[in-house]
Amino acid sequence: MAKNRAITVQGIPVTVSYEDIDDFICITDIAAAKSDNSRAADVIRNWLRNRSTLEFLSTWEEIYNPNFRVFESEHFKKEAGLVTFTPSVSEWVEKTNAVGLYVKRGKYGGTFAHKDIAFEFASAISPVFKLYLIKEFQRLKEAENDLQKLEWDAKRFLSKNNYLIQTDAVKNYLIPVCNYRKDLQWLPYAEEADLLNVALFGFTAKAWRGANPELAKKSNVRDYATINELTVLSNLESHNAQMIREGMDKKDRFEALKEIAEYQLRVLNEAEKINNRIEEQ
């Protein structure tokens, strides 16, 4: 899947970028709905200095980012509304260790926000624009899902003849040499996405990139997942969100997620083998 895609919302091109944890949308492009590109940074800065914005960003980070610095975020909230308070996105990210926003430099750069935050930003720009943004974003995801389904069907057909070659390549090339499920030194510093990666695949995204530098230039570990693994991954995301709400600590959540992943993947793989045998008869 291409990392950068573009959608057109009320005549305005908006960039969508896929990162390790989810889709991010360029809010610099969205700001163009309210002003020209030269003033987009001012629009974003004014939005960021609003207390309700900071409350939203802080809550989102506390839910999804275990490394978020809550104490530093309180400083921003106290300054909100003051004439002298003109924070930048870079300052917010640097001081709070936020992951929901980031700034990309260069000709095709801009400020990108996780889709949840981008939709909230669009509300501040124009409720109507937000509705069209959601509509076009959903259209993009539906098109990608259709494409992925075709790719999965093709992979399943080919795997019947190439199963041994494929599994040998994965074993010897794609998987980093380290047992992350037993050696938990990485755990205190892991983001939620890697909690799921290790529970399901057995290694972190960083470890995979280190083992596969060429592949990592244009793809990530989840691009090489089977349809069964992606199904389990979706379920793990739901289970993890519920455990976060229940206040479970990271180690207990990891152990639970690992158990769920092993069980569900075993069930799906066994069912697939049975279906393949039936089809071949």
Rank of each mutant, 00 (worst) to 15 (best):
F119L: 08
T53Q: 07
R51E: 10
V99Y: 02
F112V: 10
L48R: 08
A80E: 11
E72H: 12
W152Q: 12
Y132T: 02
R156P: 00
L54A: 05
E55P: 03
E61V: 04
Y132F: 07
D116V: 09
L48I: 14
K34N: 08
L57W: 00
K135H: 02
N37P: 08
A33E: 11
G106I: 03
I63R: 15
S126L: 06
E74H: 14
I44G: 05
S88W: 05
E142S: 09
G81C: 02
I44R: 10
K78D: 08
D42V: 09
G81P: 00
I134L: 14
N97G: 07
V103Y: 15
D29T: 07
K155C: 02
D146G: 00
Q148Y: 02
H75N: 07
L101K: 09
K155V: 03
A40E: 10
P87L: 13
R49L: 02
W47K: 10
L164V: 04
D153Q: 07
V128R: 13
A31L: 09
L150K: 06
A32F: 01
E94K: 15
F129Y: 15
T86M: 13
K95W: 05
E79D: 05
I134K: 04
A31E: 11
N37I: 05
L150T: 01
L158N: 14
Y163C: 08
C26A: 10
R139F: 10
S88I: 14
A143Q: 12
F56D: 00
A41S: 13
F121N: 14
R45H: 05
L133P: 01
F119P: 03
G110P: 11
V89M: 08
E120Y: 14
K149H: 00
E94M: 05
V83F: 07
A33T: 03
I27D: 03
T28S: 12
A122K: 06
I25K: 08
D153G: 00
V99F: 08
A143W: 08
F112G: 11
V83A: 13
T28F: 05
T111R: 09
K77V: 01
A124E: 10
G81W: 05
S159E: 13
S35C: 08
L150N: 06
I125Y: 12
L147C: 01
N65M: 07
L164A: 09
A98G: 02
R69T: 01
L101W: 07
E142C: 09
G81D: 04
